[in-house]
Design a protein around this nucleic acid. Structure first.
Lengths: 149, 149
DNA sequence: TATTGTTATACTCTATAACTATA
DNA sequence: TATAGTTATAGAGTATAACAATA
């Protein structure tokens, strides 16, 4: 959509690629997060929080706040609701009694596995690409993100 | 981030490409919308609404609702706040007196132009790619989205 | 003094349902 | 009857500021 509204001849290849990617993600990325969230009866931020919580690796709440690009105070409420549903637990950290760690419950691990599978399946337009295009796309994306952290 | 947490050898090229794209967009796409919104003192949905409103092409509110993937009733509030700031106007439609059309004011057009420029600039990782990679990426994305509507 | 997490507050988004005025 | 937009309501996200406990 972005690409179509901008005159094609003025845009650089990178800019056009970007707006096409934006279009793909607008159509399949965010919409998918919302769809997955609704299917699992979660909110989008709750989905992103669960996505961050790898099994067996408790995460300080402030780290979650940074990952979600939001204030610490928001994580309190998000964690509250996940805890109410029995998906995560708060635990104290040994080395610093101010810190609280979030970790998945067994139910949380199960839900996260379903969530992960739903999110990581590539969307139709990519799946339809010729295998050579798929590999080329992967390689270009690897090069783009290689040095960016 | 998505790619890293999934074992590389199990993922197909399309799936890995997808998660790398997801990573790029997570880092630069949504964050950029939020940053642009905050710079222009708008909310993200307001940004998306302005993005949809091409100058000289009034849009029925229900169409905006569909484009934003939200209920009609939400558009009322979003349009209210844009109208309060003098960026859009409501106008009646000739053929159907139930319909209200949103159109940009001159101020809205100016703001939309700045907005569009901020959003369409490709992110660093794409800009750093070799020109041949940029063109290849653009061509693959064109092929992927060509038949998808 | 600075940091972690919480609480309180205010604003926005979002869906649902009920309403109006049209069609 | 169905549709476009509004209103009312409720739940969630978000930022800011103030706070307690800890470092």
């Amino acid at each position: 959509m972005a690409a179509r509204a901008t005159p094609g001849q003025r845009t650089s290849p990178a800019a056009e690629a970007w707006s096409l990617m934006y279009e793909l993600l607008g159509a399949y990325g965010r919409r998918r997060v919302v769809a997955v969230a609704s299917e699992l009866e979660l909110s989008p931020p709750q989905v992103m929080a669960l996505k961050m919580l790898e099994p067996g690796r408790p995460v300080p709440m402030r780290e979650l706040a940074r990952a979600l690009h939001c204030d610490n105070s928001n994580v309190t409420g998000i964690a509250d609701r996940l805890e109410d549903r029995g998906l995560v637990e708060r635990r104290g950290a040994d080395h610093d009694r101010r810190v609280k760690l979030l970790c998945l419950t067994p139910e949380g691990e199960d839900l996260r596995e379903r969530l992960w599978e739903l999110l990581s399946r590539p969307p139709e337009p990519l799946g339809r690409l010729a295998p050579a295009d798929q590999r080329a796309l992967r390689d270009i994306m690897r090069r783009a993100l290689r040095a960016s952290g």
